[in-house]
Design a protein around this nucleic acid. Structure first.
Lengths: 232, 232
DNA sequence: ACCTGAACACCGTTCAAGT
DNA sequence: ACCTGAACACCGTTCAAGT
């Protein structure tokens, strides 16, 4: 089995130049499984970004033929769905949740969410296009439960959830897009300075260069929670 | 010229089946220009979505060879950038802006932003990946100026801008992703009902079926502005 | 049940060439 | 200055076939 696999791989290597990965992998090829596929897809996305994920490349990394994936997965979209959701597992707050500090819990959940998506920038780009997986639903459920437990009326619950969700999504997506292109960002601020007659206010506040994203995120979140709080 | 174009087109039509579009277009082909390219890209995106935009299809719609585009545009990414920004032009509030109602102005700007992006759902999906074009910067500038004029201190300005921006981005992106797949949404709620033991709270509030997006958007925005207001 | 290669119908983009 | 077709190196996925 191992021999068969490595044979298949050296054939592929000959065809398209040597693959660094085949060496690293050939030590012990477990059989294909959904878990392995998803985990490897996440690796690939981390390494190469959204456009770097290719069925052929993914199969290569797994030491299998490209078409083998299609037995475990319907299509590439499903790989995206599964990769996104797999990264969003929530492990809960550090201490056992006997706290009645609902606000602290909400902040923790949302900052954790944001931290994960910044650690995997592709996830922020993928999110708007993907279905809701169990981990995303789990996070929504937990958020709902916390807010309901804090006394938010049922009638206001959905507004509260979507407001917080929207805020986190927007913050993550915006931040990720800036992170993706330091050059673009510098170029944008440069263009801004050149065109400061057109954009005097944001040029003066150096909006595009403000680096305190974490602080800004937290402050904005506090404003939102201040607004939400009277609802309880 | 018209003869040459329609000749080239019928050749293309013969090659890949008849194109409905070639008839509609052949009446008067203006020369290729950046404006035409961008406008047609927007049409194509509206009709076919993000993945429907193809250099070849775009050229076809323009009645030109695929490679002709590359004289006007560096690559496909630039087409995306230009299409996104072109859709985001802001025409300002209905009445002449002598109003001192800064809050009303902010709400108008953000609802207009959101409305545009919902009218062109691809724009919400594209936004996280794209550079800041002049129209986006213009909107940020206007928002900044309004907030600064309302008395928000310079030190708080960036936080205020990004909070509002994040909120609108998140709301749009979320809404667009639900809109894109009514089937998925129904399926998700169905799965939710089936798994209601796991997600009792959001199942009970019927989070995924809540249709009052516009109302929720406005309410959440009000909470945020309530939080922001004390800053002035 | 699980995996495979060949083949199909596409992509974006380079290049050398036309006008 | 502006446009072109042929060609290259890729894609995702179907299909008929292997074990």
């Amino acid at each position: 089995m191992a021999a068969k696999r490595s044979g298949a791989q050296s054939k592929r290597s000959q065809r398209k130049g040597l693959s660094l990965r085949s060496v690293q992998e050939s030590r012990s090829e477990p059989p294909l499984s959904l878990e392995r596929i998803v985990a490897t897809a996440v690796e690939l996305l981390d390494a190469q970004g959204v456009d770097g994920l290719t069925m052929r490349r993914l199969a290569d990394r797994l030491g299998s033929g490209a078409m083998s994936l299609y037995w475990h997965v319907a299509n590439k979209e499903e790989v995206y769905d599964l990769a996104l959701d797999s990264v969003l597992e929530y492990r809960g707050p550090p201490q056992i949740a006997e706290s009645r500090d609902w606000r602290g819990e909400v902040v923790h959940m949302l900052e954790d969410w944001r931290a994960i998506m910044l650690r995997h920038p592709w996830s922020a780009l993928l999110l708007p296009r993907r279905a809701l997986g169990p981990n995303i639903l789990g996070r929504l459920e937990l958020l709902s439960k916390t807010l309901a437990g804090a006394g938010v009326a049922d009638a206001d619950l959905n507004v509260a959830i979507w407001s917080l969700w929207n805020y986190v999504m927007g913050a993550t997506v915006t931040r990720a897009s800036f992170d993706l292109s330091d050059d673009d960002r510098a170029a944008a601020q440069q263009r801004l300075t050149r065109l400061s007659e057109h954009y005097p206010t944001i040029e003066r506040s150096r909006l595009l260069l403000d680096n305190d994203w974490d602080g800004a995120f937290r402050k904005g979140l506090d404003f939102l929670l201040d607004g939400l709080a009277p609802m309880q």
